Simulated scan of single mutants.
Amino acid sequence: MTSEDVLDEFRAAGALREGHFVLSSGLHSPVFLQKNLVFMNADRCARLCKALAEKITAQVGAVDVAISPAVGGIIPGYETARWLKVPSMYVEREGGEFKLRRGFGIEPGAKVVMVEDIVTTGLSSRECIAAIKAAGGDVVAAACIVDRSGGRADVGVPLIALATLDVPAYPADQLPPELAAIAIEDPGSRRLSK
């Protein structure tokens, strides 16, 4: 599956949006990928996650478990794990830090792929990877449906992206005039009540 094939799935779902958006990272962007409109369709989600699982296997071989950050990574993490034929778990915030909860545990040294939805700066991925390592997992790679950093996000382990885009993202105090002139939408989840 090519990057254009992935974008076609987002377009078909009405999930490739243009305007002025504040991302979960706090950065502002003229493009937003509303992945939940993609993931709500089981067939579309399966196509993308099957392709991601195949890419993971081709690049790092077999893994023991897939772990995702809550909330955005849970659906693609689960579906990718299904195609990898491994258990799916997720970390969630407790006291501001990602942790495995709900009885989830990792065998020491287990080969883990961390599965994300969209990567912009890599912050959530790095935090998730740190939690996995703290729990005893060996993170062999991170994977995502879309890397919107153009390959610049450093997550600390190899990043396997189904699609790589170079979408601009700006700090609030460095907006280009054409973006600043558009009303802001804040569809991200990081600033929701904790």
Rank of each mutant, 00 (worst) to 15 (best):
S25F: 10
S25E: 09
G26S: 05
H28D: 06
S29M: 07
F32G: 11
L33A: 11
L33S: 09
K35L: 13
K35F: 14
N36E: 10
L37A: 06
L37Q: 03
V38E: 14
F39M: 06
F39C: 03
F39T: 00
M40P: 05
N41D: 12
N41A: 02
N41G: 07
R44I: 03
C45Y: 01
A46R: 04
R47D: 00
L48N: 07
K50Y: 00
A51K: 00
L52F: 00
L52V: 02
A53C: 09
E54P: 03
I56L: 08
Q59E: 13
Q59G: 01
Q59M: 12
V60S: 10
V60M: 12
A62R: 04
D64A: 06
D64H: 00
V65M: 08
A66I: 03
A66W: 14
I67K: 04
A70P: 02
V71C: 08
V71K: 01
G72P: 00
G73W: 09
G73R: 06
I74H: 01
P76M: 11
G77D: 10
G77M: 15
G77F: 15
E79Q: 14
E79K: 15
E79Y: 06
T80E: 07
W83V: 11
L84H: 06
K85N: 12
V86Q: 15
V86H: 15
S88T: 07
V91F: 13
E92Y: 14
R93Q: 05
G96A: 12
L100M: 10
R102D: 10
R102M: 11
G105V: 01
E107R: 04
E107D: 04
E107W: 01
P108D: 07
G109P: 04
V112F: 03
M114L: 14
M114W: 04
D117N: 08
I118M: 13
T121I: 08
G122N: 09
L123N: 05
L123R: 10
S125L: 05
A130V: 01
A135S: 13
A135Y: 09
G136T: 03
D138S: 09
V139D: 06
V139S: 09
A141E: 05
A141Y: 01
A143Y: 02
C144R: 00
C144K: 00
